[in-house]
């Protein structure tokens, strides 16, 4: 194997970094090209709901798409599981359950948090059973 290129680390570094930079710019642009447009008002609630989620650190114990803490269940699709009953979700947040403390959210915060959870839920499913592994090592949504 010819490794001579590695004698010029500065060159290799700059080349790799340029690719990385372009890749990053493309990531930042995802909101522009993905078909995910929402009415302005809704989009504002969702953005604020994300802040409420962060402000109260729900991620300490809960995951979205399997990312977050481990003490409680994943909440990606909790909205549709309890769709008929937003009061159930509100109740849990207000009074806590097991290791989950009570949270005193304002009415606006609760509304925005639910808008956020609704949006997360609509974005896909985190239920392992909805996917199937493929022979090449990837997985896909079951038909």
């Amino acid at each position: 194997m010819n490794l001579n290129i590695f004698q010029q680390p500065r060159k290799v570094f700059i080349i790799l970094f340029s690719f990385f930079f372009l890749f990053s710019l493309w990531i930042y642009a995802i909101p522009l090209f993905s078909n995910y447009q929402k009415p302005v008002k809704e989009s504002k609630s969702i953005a604020n709901g994300r802040l409420v989620w962060q402000k109260y650190n729900c991620h300490t114990c809960h995951q979205l798409y399997g990312l977050g803490g481990y003490l409680g269940p994943d909440l990606t699709n909790t909205y549709s599981r309890n769709k008929e009953n937003e009061t159930y979700l509100k109740g849990i947040i207000k009074s806590g359950v097991r290791q989950m403390p009570k949270f005193n959210l304002t009415d606006d915060e609760t509304r925005e948090l639910l808008a956020f959870l609704k949006d997360v839920d609509a974005s896909g499913t985190a239920d392992v059973n909805s996917y199937q592994p493929e022979i090449n090592g990837t997985f896909s949504l079951k038909k």
Binding site: Y28, I30, S43
Partner: peptide, 17 residues
């Protein structure tokens, strides 16, 4: 920036990047 935050999927992608 709300630009990133309001797009949940892009925001999570960036967070894990």
């Amino acid at each position: 920036f709300p630009y990133f935050r309001s797009h949940f999927i892009a925001d999570m992608t960036l967070q894990w990047k």
